[in-house]
């Protein structure tokens, strides 16, 4: 555990000494603010239209549904593009500059290296999630949104981000080149993001499996305010798969 802590400390230090973490966090918050503002503007128009003809057959516009849900779903897309920026250097850079040789010849297990590094990204993702969580929480000051879906949606964002980060790290452990790592993780994550899209033309078990495998469908439940054991288990398994592959990839390099 002491070793994991040492790796974690070093990793977070690297994130915050190099400008990477600042750029990713700022970019995320900037985009989040923009989308939030747009959705709020659209909601205003809907509310105005509704109050002009309250009996026009429209249901009462709901703040959670119109603003918060759309906001979270847009942020999932943003994460697909930002997470590879965080994970591309994780292992690729160690290999290129030879510091992996230091780690590999120290009495550390590969598992400890992988876990320490993952916790480093997790820390950055935690800050990112907390920062974008401020926008919907501001709504509580001026309106009366439901708090539960706001918080469970944030949990969804965090779990979604952590799963993608562990996959990004696995990809980064396969190459010395950060650009290659970034592009291949982006492609992998995008594929995973749209994995449920053929469902409409499928039926039966195949459709069910794709729906289950889709991180977007799983995150959707959390965004709706339903914290299901099933969803949490799904994300934790995805994280474990990424960590497992990273560990295997590094172990293979150590003994080749």
């Amino acid at each position: 555990m002491k070793n994991v802590w040492a790796i974690f400390r070093r990793e977070t230090l690297s994130f915050f000494v190099s400008p990477v973490a600042y750029f990713v966090i700022t970019g995320y918050v900037l985009l989040a603010g923009y989308f939030f503002f747009m959705l709020l503007g659209r909601f205003n128009i809907v509310v105005a239209r509704f109050s002009m003809m309250p009996n026009g057959g429209m249901p009462t516009p709901n703040l959670n549904q119109w603003v918060v849900e759309g906001y979270y779903h847009t942020l999932l897309v943003v994460l697909v593009f930002l997470i590879p920026m965080l994970t591309m250097r994780l292992i690729a850079e160690e290999r290129r500059r030879g510091t992996f040789e230091l780690l590999a010849t120290s009495p550390l297990s590969v598992g400890e290296i992988v876990l320490g590094k993952f916790l480093g990204v997790a820390f950055v993702l935690f800050i990112m999630t907390a920062a974008v969580g401020l926008f919907p929480l501001v709504l509580c000051l001026f309106g009366n949104p439901e708090l539960r879906p706001i918080l469970s949606g944030l949990l969804g964002l965090l779990l979604f981000g952590l799963s993608f980060a562990s996959i990004g790290m696995a990809v980064s452990s396969l190459t010395e080149n950060q650009i290659v790592a970034a592009i291949s993780s982006m492609v992998t994550l995008l594929l995973l993001y749209v994995i449920h899209s053929p469902v409409e033309s499928l039926s039966g078990a195949a459709a069910d499996i794709l729906m289950y495998l889709s991180p977007v469908v799983q995150a959707h439940d959390l965004i709706k305010g339903v914290i299901g054991v099933k969803n949490v288990v799904y994300f934790l398994s995805l994280i474990s798969v990424g960590l497992f592959f990273s560990q295997r990839a590094l172990e293979a390099q150590r003994w080749r």
Partner: peptide, 28 residues
């Protein structure tokens, strides 16, 4: 063992002090 590879395995973004503390920790 103590091992110095052909190129010293340094983390450029760390100070010498931080780096040596890190190595001390992972070397147990």
């Amino acid at each position: 063992i103590g091992y110095l590879p052909e190129t010293p395995p340094l983390y450029g973004e760390m100070t010498v002090l931080e780096y040596l503390r890190f190595v001390a920790q992972i070397r147990g």
